[in-house]
Nucleic acid binder design. Structure first.
Length: 489
RNA sequence: GGCAGCAUACCCAAGUGGUUAAGGGACAGGUUUGCAAAACCUAUAUGCCCCGGUUCGAAUCCGGGUGCUGCCUCCA
């Protein structure tokens, strides 16, 4: 039995209890990429948010069908291909591969379906034909236009009134807001045969068609970036509902956009993009995910130079605690912890036991990942506090194992903590050193020299070496089991 | 011009009528340490953009301002 949750529905602009079309099933369609370039950290927010959302739903026993499309036939693809002297579909295929690599690097689940426009031309033509037959669309010179005036409810998602839009000249169209379902072929463009002659689909129709073929006439949830509300999603509604005579999507879920420190959004057209590959070259995937999930998905998310370093600090803190817990687990399981470790252990026990309920309560209220993460940090602090007790190292086992379950939950339900702590810190080391141009060998040598100085009790020399190491952004830790070092985050 | 949304500490941020306004980062003091690091503790918004209103009670609801953002052309 799937757990209930509430969702903000952009269509009604209110928080609603989610009611599935089919018990325990969620049909989710998310607008994917137009594949003419690499994916940037703005796109990735949508990818990560919906990936985490799907993981959460599945963890709560929902049977999710997750669809995310590729738009591989499009003006920008054609334009870019012409620039490169490449076939448009070949260029799109190339960037689909790049996209898949990026998704793997970010640790995203594959959707259940990843339909492409070029594989769904028949459906698109069929839908367009139905719309023409029903009087919702009209042909001019081999192109087919959707008539916004033919659909009374046009504007119900975005609140736009068609006659109030700041719009360009209508040209041959009946109304400036009418949009293309089918575009007559131009020389050098990919085209397919249709009842209106050779051509290719317009921008919006493919989502209506592909959502229909994968999930049926009515979706449970349609997702995408806030910038798609108008006209893209508005047009999808107009097409699908006029064509099928049925409600298109019961819930609309829109993620907020990244904003630059300048206040503007990150956008390809603004030339202020950070590629996923660039971001992941310097930071582990978990840092990126925490960056996204620390904010509520609907809020604007500020991007800055410090954003990823701060997120890395956050996630490293959680990994430190997890490492601590793992070092404790397995020790003296029979010992009654409360007696030896006192109230700090009891606090960990209480927080651990309450964790799951609080965590999922937060997620069930419009997927409040920010609050859910807050609970994790609270637990982390309690664990660290407990670990200050010397006995925790030898007797904290039973309680550590309970606390560790919180990490499993966060992993399963949000996709965090994809690595073991050692592997995580190793990746941090590799990536941060690569970013700063310092070699492991250099640091190892300096650390060894300092250890020798310490062994000689030459404190002055040891401290000079520490300063030198510190200047490279490295923290040396003199632990009971020897000296280790970590890149400062 | 039209539509939609946002405004909480130095920064990020949760909070959708009722305990001391979560959490993270930064900064300062302390505990610990040969020195450090990590960790913990303490301090940091009698106040949630401004002005009215509803209410026993509002950051939270209503009205009016101000500022910012997104969309109306491709955009996650």
């Amino acid at each position: 039995m799937a757990a209930p949750f509430r969702l903000y529905n952009s269509l009604t602009r209110s928080l609603e209890d989610f009611e599935p079309l089919t018990p325990d099933h969620v049909g989710l369609y998310v607008c994917g990429m137009t594949v003419y370039d690499r994916c940037h950290v703005g796109h990735a927010r949508a990818m990560v948010v919906f990936d985490s959302f799907v993981r959460y739903l599945r963890h709560q026993d929902w049977n999710v069908t997750f669809v995310r499309n590729f738009t591989d036939v499009d003006d920008k693809i054609i334009a870019r291909a012409a620039q490169n002297g490449e076939e448009p579909l070949a260029l799109a295929a190339r960037f689909i591969d790049v996209f898949h690599e990026d998704m793997r690097a970010m640790g995203l689940l594959m959707p259940d379906h990843e339909p492409k426009v070029s594989d769904n031309i028949d459906e698109i033509i069929a839908m367009t034909k139905t719309l023409v037959d029903k009087g919702n669309a009209y042909e001019i010179d081999g192109s087919v236009w959707y008539s916004v005036k033919s659909f009374d409810e046009y504007g119900k998602l975005s609140g736009q009134r068609v006659d109030e839009l700041r719009s360009a000249d209508a040209g041959d169209k009946r109304h400036p807001a009418d949009f293309a379902l089918w575009k007559a072929a131009k020389p050098g463009e990919p085209s397919w045969e249709s009842p209106w002659g050779p051509g290719r689909p317009g921008w919006h129709i493919e989502c209506s068609a592909m959502a229909g073929t994968t999930l049926g006439k009515t979706l449970d949830i349609h997702g995408g970036g806030l910038d798609l509300v108008f006209p893209h999603h508005e047009n999808e509604i107009a097409q699908s509902e006029a064509c099928n005579g049925e409600h298109y999507s019961r819930y609309w879920m829109h993620n907020g956009l990244l904003t630059m420190s300048s206040g503007q959004k990150m956008g390809k057209s603004l030339g202020n993009v950070i590629d996923i590959q660039d971001a992941l070259a310097g930071f582990p995937a978990d840092a990126l995910r925490v960056y996204y999930l620390q904010n509520h998905y609907r809020s604007p998310l500020p991007w800055s130079e410090e954003a990823l370093p701060e997120a890395l600090t956050m996630v490293a803190r959680l990994y430190e605690t997890r490492e601590l817990l793992e070092s404790m687990s397995g020790t003296e399981r029979a010992d009654p912890v409360a007696q030896d470790l006192g109230s700090d252990a009891m606090d960990v026990l209480k927080l651990s036991q309450r964790f799951e309920a609080r965590f999922f309560k937060a997620l069930s209220e419009d997927f409040n990942t920010s609050q859910a993460l807050g609970h994790l940090f609270e637990l982390s602090r309690a664990v660290n506090k407990m670990a200050n007790h010397k006995k925790a190292k030898t007797r904290g086992g039973p309680i550590a194992e309970i606390a560790l379950k919180a990490y499993d939950v966060a992993h399963e339900a949000l996709g965090l903590f994809v690595l073991e702590p050692q592997a995580f810190f190793e990746e941090v080391k590799t990536k941060r050193l690569a970013a700063s141009g310092v070699s492991v060998e250099d640091i190892d040598a300096l650390v060894a020299a300092r250890s020798q100085a310490r062994a000689d009790k030459d404190w002055a020399k040891a401290d000079t070496l520490r300063d030198e190491i510190d200047a490279k952004g490295i923290d040396v830790r003199d632990g009971a089991d020897g000296v280790t070092w970590r890149v400062r985050v």
